[in-house]
Structure formats: C-alpha cells, structure tokens
C-alpha cells in the first residue's frame, strides 16, 4: 500500500474507551502506515506547558478522531466535577484546539453511544456537534473501520479526491486557499438522502411524502454543489418529513379505528 502523507491522531478518554482506542489504532494500521497514526500524543512531561504541547502536537495533525464512549459526556473527576467542564481537561483542550485550527475532526461513536448534544458540550467544543460522525459497532468492527479509513483517506492531503496529482503542480496561491477551504468543509461521509422512507410515504397515500422526496433531492443537490454541512441538515429534514408523514397516517388510523369502534357500539 502506498503511503499517504498526513497524520491521524486518536483522542480518547482512558477510562471511557482505552481498549476501543487500542483496537482502532491496531485496525487502522491495515490502511495506514504505523507512523501516521498517533494514539498517546498527550503524554506531557512535568514542567511542560501543556497548552503549548498540545498546540505543537496538533500542528502535525491532519485528522483528529475523537472516540466517544458511553461515559464520555458524563464522566467526572475525583471531586465530582464533570471532566468536560474542566478547562484543563485534555480531551477538551485537544478537541477545542483542533476545532479552532480547522483540523478535520471526526467524532467516532462506539458501543452504541449517541452523538453528544450541543448543550452538553462546553462552549469551545460546540462545533464538534456539527461534525459528521462515524459509528463503530463491535459486531461490524472491521467493516466500520474500513469505512472510517476511506473517509480519512479523502481528507488526508494527497488522498483528496478533489485534487488530482496533475492539478497539484499548477496550484497557485489562490487555489491553495481554496483547497484548504475544501478540506475544512469536506464532511466525512455523504449523508443518506432517506429516499426509501420518502418513497414509502408517497406509496402509503401520503401527499406529505412528496415533500420528503423533494427534501431527499435537496440533499443530493447540496452535496453535489459542495455545501456539505447544509446537505447533512437536509438529510435530517428529509427523514423528518417522512416521519411526519408516517405519524400522520398512524394518527388517522387510530382515529379511524376509534370511529369504527364507536359506530359498531352504537348499532
């Protein structure tokens, strides 16, 4: 396998996902060189300025994987204070620094953990909520890591699908800026357009379903035009529309059943 330049950092809480981080670290070596992946870069020596150390370490980082396990949000320190509320918490410092430096940050959800809500995140980590996450399930570990690796390859400097090797040499300064922009906004995975649900809604005699199909189309249009964040939002909307349609039909069925029952009893 040809080596792609660029480095991947794995950020995790030792008490929350030590083994998952180790497993991910090992599995990612199938796709990347060992010296591209860093797991314990937060080993900071006594006397080091840790903010500086983190900044320094992240300078080389292209992708930061944030492993989020079941206790990631709620974990507290000895005094009962939530770790995330501690401004010196390593996880928080690293993620916040990476976000502020426009490093590609990918939340990696393990053990069926759901994405933390924006309200649960401290101010300087709020942007994490908007990053497209990747789920890793124990039962599909290898497949999930392969998908993650594909996503990472797309955002690593020369693995980018946008910048062909030929174009590379002709890059002018302005192009360089543009390219960085692309890297920042490039989402990890293309959001689903939820077309299946939308078509089901239409077929179930629900005119609302057509709104869902429209929303579904919007996801693809936005994605194609490079508006990735908007596409992710549209993807959620498309799903919501289908769900509204199905809730409507459930309510109608319920009312209809009630009507039938009351008619039957009045005979």
């Amino acid at each position: 396998m040809s080596q792609l330049p660029g480095t991947i950092f794995i950020n995790y809480r030792k008490d929350d996902s030590r083994w998952n981080a180790l497993a991910l670290y090992n599995e990612l070596q199938k796709y990347f060189e060992k010296d591209q992946i860093f797991k314990d870069f937060n080993t900071i020596l006594p006397g080091d300025d840790f903010v500086f150390s983190i900044e320094n370490a992240l300078r080389k980082c292209d992708v930061l994987l944030v492993i989020i396990g079941p206790n990631w949000v709620s974990m507290t320190d000895e005094s009962g204070k939530r770790r995330l509320d501690d401004a010196d918490d390593f996880v928080r410092l690293e993620v916040a620094t990476a976000l502020s430096r426009n490093i590609q940050v990918i939340p990696v959800l393990i053990d069926n953990t759901t994405m933390p809500k924006a309200a649960d995140l401290p101010e300087n980590m709020k942007l994490l909520y908007r990053r497209q996450f990747v789920e890793i399930d124990n039962t599909r570990f290898e497949d999930d890591v392969r998908n993650l690796a594909e996503a990472i390859k797309k955002v690593l400097p020369d693995g980018s699908i946008r910048v062909q090797p030929d174009d590379h040499q002709h890059l002018k300064k302005t192009d360089d800026v543009k390219r960085t922009d692309n890297k920042i906004t490039a989402s990890v995975a293309r959001p689903g357009n939820n077309l299946v649900l939308a078509i089901l809604a239409v077929v179930c005699c629900l005119p609302l379903g057509i709104v869902a199909v429209m929303a579904s189309n919007k996801v693809d249009v936005l994605w194609a035009s490079g508006q990735h964040d908007e596409a992710i939002v549209a993807s959620k909307k498309a799903k919501s529309w289908s769900i509204y349609a199905f809730i409507t039909v459930a309510v109608i069925y319920f009312l209809y059943a009630l009507m039938l029952a009351s008619n039957a009893s009045s005979y």
Partner: peptide, 8 residues
C-alpha cells in the same frame, strides 16, 4: 436507482 430527482 438512488436518484430522488427522477422519482420527484
């Protein structure tokens, strides 16, 4: 087959 525009 995943072409929402066509179905729309």
């Amino acid at each position: 087959f995943n072409k929402p525009r066509i179905y729309l």
